[in-house]
Design a protein around this nucleic acid. Structure first.
Length: 469
RNA sequence: GCCCCGAUGGUGUAGUGGCCUAUCAUGCAGCCCUGUCGAGGCUGCGACCCGGGUUCAAAUCCCGGUCGGGGCGCCA
């Protein structure tokens, strides 16, 4: 539940439930008004218990027929679960529950002795997804009813964690001198080849949804913004159907001038270190909620393991050797696929960088040094990946800042430099060497939360077959 | 695009040709009891994805479709 200590009263409540729960003792005897979802309603006689939940906590409301308008009492008593209710009453210490012999009584808890209130909105029955039920629900049903799924405690906790991860990431980058930018998501050209783009109509012109802020964040750096980052959507029209791919996802991108691939790997590992450290320090309560659920499902608990710095660097050539020794079929020049990553992850289970990929496998904007060759004599690049276990988190690299080589690379990949003048022109008037990366936010969150499917940690995921809700 | 698997009340499931007027849990509706607290007790409600076929008999076998899951490919 969220910390609401500083929240101001609103038209619908004098206190958050979280405030009542945490202030507890000092509020005894005070009249408060709270609002929330009716989680359970027990009792059909002269008394009634209603567990009320808002985004900050849950508290029991105690209702006695004699203490209020009888019509309201009857209404509350028959209200369906998840209906929203506003209640006014006096804070009191809850009577301690009966405990088994030998068990120590729980710490004091608080409740509201209700005197009045109103029903804000009735929930239809039955709920398509149980909020507090023990029964499992399939992911598809959950996503169809995400608005209800989000009310489940552990799901809610995951999205609070997501917000924290972005907050800590921003914090760290700003501390390192990066500034936040936004680049256009409607673009004119199929910028980079490779991935398929979603076409769209921009008035009378053909346009596309952006697959990556890559070229624009570079232009921002070339323009002198020096160090930039963007947290924004990227769209890819690939017909993949896996636990880790979506057609719309949030990419966490940085780009920095006067930096090379090693420099931005440093930024990345420090940022991840900061995020993990802060989560461990501030958000164990959210991890606990997720673990409570995981235990109930028979899953292993997750732990926030702060990675040690620096992360291992396993250059491409070495990675190929590891895969070969592990019995994987691979040749220099092949992509390192998921099943290959399993072999590497066996030796490097946590975060690890894979730098120095073959230039032939990298996009045209990746920098290379002519004297850096692979074991077979082929040109290496300054592009890198960050993996965790078998999954790719990041792709990044030092960028090509020499315009003649950029154009050569474009031609080499079957692209026409004339289509990229909006980009290459940025390099004609003095270009700082620069580097950057793009990180999949949801993939990072999968690592942190133990989610087995990227859809778990995306509010309203867009995949091959889902555009609603 | 390829391969494999699956679809049973609102939800999650049991069921492998007749024991199925279909199991269990949860839910929902109602009643009883109760300062309850994973509340408890009782009663009831509610389902075999769609279309065709095989068979005396189909939730169960076959074919097609739809939807979903897993794996692969694709993926700056």
């Amino acid at each position: 539940m969220r910390d609401s200590a500083e929240w101001q009263p609103t038209s619908y409540r004098s206190h958050t439930i979280g405030q009542v729960v945490s202030l507890g003792d000092s509020l005894i005897g005070t009249e408060v008004t709270i609002s929330g979802y009716a989680e359970t309603v027990r009792g059909r006689g002269a008394i009634c218990f209603l567990m009320l939940r808002d985004g900050t906590g849950r508290i029991q409301a105690f209702l006695k027929r004699d203490n209020m308008d009888q019509a309201f009492f009857d209404l509350v008593q028959s209200v369906s679960r998840e209906s929203t209710v506003q209640l006014t009453g006096v804070v009191a210490e809850k009577r301690a529950p009966k405990v088994k012999e030998g068990e120590s009584p729980p710490p004091p808890e608080y409740e509201i002795n209700v005197s009045s209130g109103s029903i804000l909105a009735i929930a239809s029955t039955p709920l398509p997804v149980g909020v507090t039920d023990d029964v499992q629900v399939g992911l598809d049903v959950r996503l169809d009813n995400r608005h209800l799924d989000l009310r489940r405690e552990h799901v809610n906790a995951m999205f609070q964690l997501r917000s924290r991860v972005l907050q800590y990431g921003r914090e760290h980058l700003i501390a390192e001198g990066f500034q936040e930018i936004n680049t256009p998501k409607i673009i004119a050209a199929a910028a980079e080849g490779g991935t398929n783009l979603f076409p769209m109509k921009y008035f009378d012109t053909d346009a596309y949804l952006s697959q990556s802020p890559q070229l624009y964040k570079q232009l921002a750096v070339l323009g002198g913004l020096e160090r930039v980052f963007e947290i924004g959507p990227a769209f890819r029209a690939e017909k993949h159907d896996t636990y880790r791919h979506l057609n719309e996802f949030i990419s966490f991108d940085i780009e920095g001038a006067w930096m090379d691939d090693e420099d931005v790997m440093g930024v990345q590992e420090r940022m991840i270190f900061h995020i993990w450290s802060e989560v461990k320090k501030n958000d164990q309560n959210l991890i606990d909620i997720i673990n409570k659920y995981r235990i109930s499902q028979g899953n292993e608990e997750i732990e926030v393991d702060i990675p040690s710095l620096p992360f291992p660097r396993i250059p491409y050539c070495e990675a190929i050797e590891i895969v070969k020794k592990g019995g994987g079929e691979i040749e220099w020049g092949d992509d390192i696929e998921s099943h290959h990553c399993d072999l590497i992850a066996a030796k490097f289970p946590g975060f690890h960088f894979i730098p120095r990929w073959p230039m032939a496998m990298k996009p045209f904007y990746i920098h290379h040094k002519e004297n850096e060759k692979g074991t077979t004599g082929e040109q290496l690049s300054r592009g890198f990946d960050l993996n965790f276990g078998r999954d790719e988190m990041t792709s990044g690299g030092a960028r090509e800042h020499r315009v003649d080589i950029l154009e050569e690379n474009l031609r080499g990949m079957g692209l026409d430099p004339a289509d990229f003048t909006f980009y290459t022109d940025g390099f004609r008037y003095g270009a700082p060497p620069h580097a950057g990366w793009g990180l999949g936010v949801a993939r990072l969150l999968m690592v942190l939360t133990g989610a087995g499917n990227v859809r778990e940690v995306v509010l309203f995921p867009r995949d091959r077959s889902r555009v609603t809700p």
